[in-house]
Design a protein around this nucleic acid. Structure first.
Length: 515
DNA sequence: TCTGGGGTCCTAGGACCC
DNA sequence: TCTGGGGTCCTAGGACCC
């Protein structure tokens, strides 16, 4: 999918179509997940600090990701792929390999190209979004072809022409060659794929190690026979948080580790798995990162067991100089839960108890959970869906100083208007993402030029929640340039107070450091 | 106001075992 | 009675991908 998250946001928010959109971390330490093509013109790229992106393009819309929407769209697309072949290997929400041979597609350039083109039409019809297709005789070449085809394109590499296409390219196009490998190669005078192939396998192994060197040599000479593998089981589960300000308080560090352990186990259990090795991750103020791990005697999915292991591990780490990130993970996953029934029953009982009453359980220092029970002060993050009792569906455009600005529009409406409310306005509630396409046509065949993106479809007021046509008057807030999260402070510089409710004191504040 | 979050794979050293 | 040669497991770190 092309600029997936940003494109999905543009499809969902008519006022953002054709404008620079940046999806990613909103906070002071956020990074860009996806920039729309309009935003890339300004030099904004994935993985760039959001703060830097704001400098490059202050007028872009900066939105927090809505993964539930992206997952829904992803499932629709993956469904279309599975209709082509039983062998589909997802790499992420927006990318997958498909083995067309296993799907019985006639192995000729013409037939394969036709399948790719039909797929692109079907994706657009079913999701309103564009995807790009690479067609080739191996996974590596198909991936390179799809990158080359972006945006909104298709590229087929005819058999026999692989090397003439590949050799002039930078070695960086080969998947697995990142900045470090490229630099090692550059120092050896190797910059292109052709030079990589010329270097020979022995030289590459000497430079890069056995596996990497041999693998790179195979790729550079066009050899890649890795099969498309459907449905791989996850090998680890982990969660981590970067804090808006470095943590120095030891008790707070322990508390956060306990919370992360609980979240990690939640995800582990949701997946029906258990794990044997507990890992913690600590990133210091200077970005240096270390991990510590402990392998248990058997796999567990007991939150108390994971929490205690994580607590032992953090005990051995000096955190006095400041911690910017903490993480907890579990690996060595077993296919199913083997926890002994006593431990499980006990932990469930205590979880139930602490849900009603309050913690005070276990050893002293672990108010771990309970966090979820207490209503955290609502945070109106830019991009999130809201619903207003009178005005219907909309999304948060910005918030600050006790106010939240909402734009009322839906994926199938005209660009909507902006209104501002008090953050605690009782008529305003969090909302759910709306489908990008009015009625996702099943099967996805047939014409019906994709609704959504392009033109204004029938302006009929939505079913029920109309976009409030007439009526105007509202307090200020010129929609004009799609302000990011501002609205506060004087002038342009969003005085980005660390959030609403920041009292006079500049203390950490309880609930506000994370989303 | 530099640098997210969730993963995978590989390497290397030490412990331990036969 | 100067130190073999495997193999596996565990731990830690690093590169890379989206």
């Amino acid at each position: 999918m092309d600029a997936f998250y940003a494109s999905a946001e543009q499809a969902a928010k008519p006022s953002l179509r054709g404008k620079p959109v940046v999806v990613g971390g909103i906070g002071p330490r956020g990074v860009v997940a996806t920039a729309s093509y309009e935003a890339r013109v300004f030099g904004i790229r994935s993985a760039m600090a959001t703060a830097q992106a704001r400098r490059l393009c202050p007028n872009a819309a900066y939105l927090t990701p809505r993964f539930s929407l992206y997952r829904d769209v992803s499932e629709v697309v993956m469904g279309l792929l599975r209709a082509l072949s039983p062998l589909v290997e997802p790499l992420s929400l927006d990318e997958a390999f498909v083995d067309l041979e296993a799907g019985g597609v006639e192995p000729t350039p013409a037939a394969v190209r036709a399948v790719g083109e039909r797929l692109r039409r079907d994706i657009h019809a079913a999701t309103g979004l564009s995807g790009s297709v690479g067609l080739a005789a191996s996974k590596m070449l198909a991936k390179i072809a799809s990158e080359d085809a972006k945006p909104d394109g298709l590229l087929l590499i005819p058999p026999g022409t692989e090397l003439e296409m590949l050799w002039p390219m930078s070695v960086r196009v080969i998947p697995g060659v990142g900045p470090a490998t490229a630099e090692t190669l550059r120092r050896a005078g190797i910059a292109t794929v052709a030079e990589t192939a010329e270097a020979g396998e022995a030289e590459l192994v000497r430079l890069l190690g056995k596996a990497h060197g041999a693998g790179l040599y195979a790729m550079a000479t066009g050899h890649d026979d890795r099969p498309v593998v459907a449905e791989r089981d996850a090998k680890s589960v982990s969660v981590e948080d970067t804090f808006e300000e470095d943590l120095t308080d030891r008790t707070r560090v322990q508390l956060e580790i306990a919370r992360l352990a609980d979240r990690c186990v939640q995800r582990l259990r949701a997946a029906g798995r258990s794990g044997r090795t507990v890992v913690i991750k600590v990133r210091s103020y200077d970005f240096s990162t270390l991990t510590r791990s402990e392998t248990l005697r058997g796999p567990t999915d007991d939150p108390a067991v994971v929490r205690e292991a994580a607590a032992r591990l953090i005990d051995g780490v000096d955190t006095t100089t400041g911690v910017r990130l903490l993480g907890v993970g579990v690996s060595g996953l077993a296919d199913y839960t083997q926890e002994d029934l006593f431990a499980q029953a006990a932990s469930e009982a205590s979880a139930a108890a602490s849900a009603t009453t309050d913690p005070v359980r276990g050893s002293g220092a672990e108010p771990g959970e309970a966090a979820g029970a207490v209503e955290r002060p609502r945070r109106w993050l830019p991009g999130l869906d809201v619903h207003h009792a009178e005005y219907g569906a909309g999304w948060v455009q910005g918030s600050g100083v006790g106010r939240v600005t909402v734009r009322f529009e839906t994926p199938w409406s005209e660009p909507g208007r902006v209104r501002t409310f008090a953050v605690d306005d009782p008529d305003l509630e969090p909302g759910e993402p709306l489908p990008l396409v009015r009625e996702a046509l099943p099967g996805g065949d047939a014409g019906l030029p994709g609704p959504s993106t392009g033109q204004a479809t029938a302006p009929g007021p939505g079913p029920g929640s109309g976009p409030v046509p007439e009526d105007e008057d509202e307090d200020g807030v010129d929609p004009g340039a799609v302000p990011g999260g501002s609205g506060s402070g004087p002038g342009p510089g969003p005085a980005a107070g660390p959030g609403p409710g920041a009292g006079p004191g500049s203390r950490p504040m309880p609930g506000m450091s994370r989303r």
